[in-house]
Simulated assay, not measured.
Amino acid sequence: MNLQGRKIVVTGASAGIGLGIVRQCRAAGAEVTGFDINEAGAQKLAGLGADFQLVDVSDAAAFATSIAEANARMGGLDGFVNNAGVTIKVPFLEMSLAQMDMLWEVNQRSVLVGCQTAGRIMKDAGVRGAIVNIASNHARATNPGHEGYSATKGAIVSMTRAMAWSLGAHAIRVNALCPGMTQTEIVIEAMKDPANAENFRGWAADNEVSTVEEIGDAAVFLLSDASMALNGADVLADRAMSALLGVNDTRRG
């Protein structure tokens, strides 16, 4: 899983899974530029030896321009990770169109824009590239209140499968990575309550909660030549969380 000399862009890079991906890509030898809407992330990325660009992925035109700028600054683009996303949990009958639009613009449309723009750059440069789209195990199994969120994650998986042929013809692989419960900053804070920690661990077959670095390692694998046979795959990284029916049914408390 060597990324030495590879030039990679990661969106949503200032915290959580995105920051974990940046950290593991850097550890594997890649040059990384992180995009985020939060300017405070610049210092975090600098500490990892990564560049930072202030980017709002919901602004499609600005997002595409930022990818081109990163490509020009790094002198190439070998890998792209669509990680930026938002979660909105709201009872289905109360969900507003504005909330649905936000989920679509950030979670789904940005993936389309990112893949198109990065794909064109890689194609024009003749690069054997790799794109990783961060979806979720909610694409397969979800809970009430996550209808809009799970729809966007399911769309990412479906788009990835189709894009495998569209981009594969240009030697560009595209795969989806579907994490489950992960120790992001919010989850770590919640797990300070022993009851929450026990509940979160109970979702996994091995009674563990994935770290952001573990998800980052999975992303590094998909970006590397070690995964050359994978194209159009959706890789579940949820410690078997979604493998059982009726486990910790949130409708029943």
Rank of each mutant, 00 (worst) to 15 (best):
I17N: 08
A226I: 00
G47Y: 04
A62L: 09
L177V: 02
V187A: 11
N38G: 07
I121G: 06
N2I: 07
M122Q: 05
R252W: 06
S242H: 02
D101N: 14
A98L: 14
G47L: 02
K7W: 04
W165K: 15
G232I: 03
V209Q: 04
R201M: 04
A229Y: 11
F221V: 00
M1R: 10
R73Q: 13
N38Y: 09
I131T: 07
H146D: 14
S96V: 08
I131E: 02
M122I: 05
D101W: 10
L244P: 00
R120E: 12
A237S: 13
M163W: 11
D124R: 15
R252S: 09
R109L: 06
N196E: 14
A169D: 12
G49R: 01
L230G: 08
A46P: 07
D36G: 11
G145W: 04
S242L: 01
H170A: 14
A28H: 00
A98M: 10
G145Y: 09
V212W: 06
G18N: 02
Q24Y: 12
V113E: 03
A151V: 07
W104Q: 14
C115T: 14
T87F: 13
Q108P: 00
L3C: 11
A171Y: 13
F92M: 09
A135P: 00
A164H: 05
L48T: 07
V22Q: 01
P194Q: 03
I121P: 07
L48R: 07
A197E: 10
E208Y: 11
M181E: 12
I186P: 06
N107V: 06
R6M: 12
A141K: 15
A240T: 06
Q99C: 06
R140Y: 09
D206H: 12
G5I: 03
E214A: 12
S227P: 00
G75L: 02
A27E: 11
D78N: 07
L177Y: 02
A155F: 10
W203I: 09
